[in-house]
C-alpha cells in the first residue's frame, strides 16, 4: 500500500462526505465528551475514545460531535464519558471500556435509553469549575 498523504487524506474525506452526506459540525446535536486527563488515560481512555470514534463512523452517525476534556473529577470511575443528547439529561458514564462504549452508542445515542450501572453522580461544582 502506498503511503497515506495529505492529498489522499483529502480524497478519502471527499469520498466519505459523498457516501455519508456529511453535514457541518454546526448541525451536530449530540455530543460525546471523553475524559482524557492523566487519570483517564492511565485507565484506558485512549482505547475508549478510539472505540467510540470507530463505532460512530461504522454506524454512519453524522450528528455526533466527539470531543475530549481533562479530568472530570471522577478519577475513581475512569474512563469517563459524558453524553449529551437533545431531550435527555446530560449523563456522565464511568468505567467505560470498549463494550460499554458500544452500548452507549447503541442504547443511549440511538435508542435514547440510559445504561444502568455506569451512571456517575456529577462531581461538586468546585471540582469541575
Amino acid at each position: 500500500m502506498s503511503k497515506l498523504t495529505l492529498d489522499s487524506l483529502r480524497k478519502l474525506r471527499e469520498e466519505k462526505q459523498r457516501s455519508l452526506a456529511l453535514r457541518d459540525s454546526e448541525n451536530k446535536d449530540v455530543q460525546v465528551v471523553v475524559g482524557m486527563g492523566t487519570c483517564g488515560i492511565a485507565a484506558g481512555a485512549k482505547d475508549t475514545f478510539g472505540a467510540i470514534v470507530d463505532i460512530i463512523a461504522e454506524k454512519g452517525l453524522t450528528n455526533v460531535l466527539v470531543r475530549q476534556t481533562g479530568c472530570m473529577g471522577l478519577c475513581h470511575s475512569e474512563p469517563t464519558v459524558e453524553v449529551v443528547v437533545p431531550g435527555m439529561p446530560a449523563i456522565i458514564y464511568g468505567k467505560v471500556d470498549v463494550d460499554v462504549a458500544r452500548r452507549i452508542v447503541d442504547e443511549h445515542i440511538i435508542g435514547h435509553k440510559l445504561l444502568d450501572n455506569h451512571i456517575c453522580d456529577r462531581p461538586a461544582v468546585d471540582i469541575i469549575h
Partner: peptide, 13 residues
C-alpha cells in the same frame, strides 16, 4: 485535509 477533528470520520482519517 480531513475536516473537523471532532467528527468521527475526520478523527478516523
Amino acid at each position: 485535509a480531513a475536516g473537523s477533528l471532532q467528527d468521527a470520520v475526520g478523527i478516523v482519517l
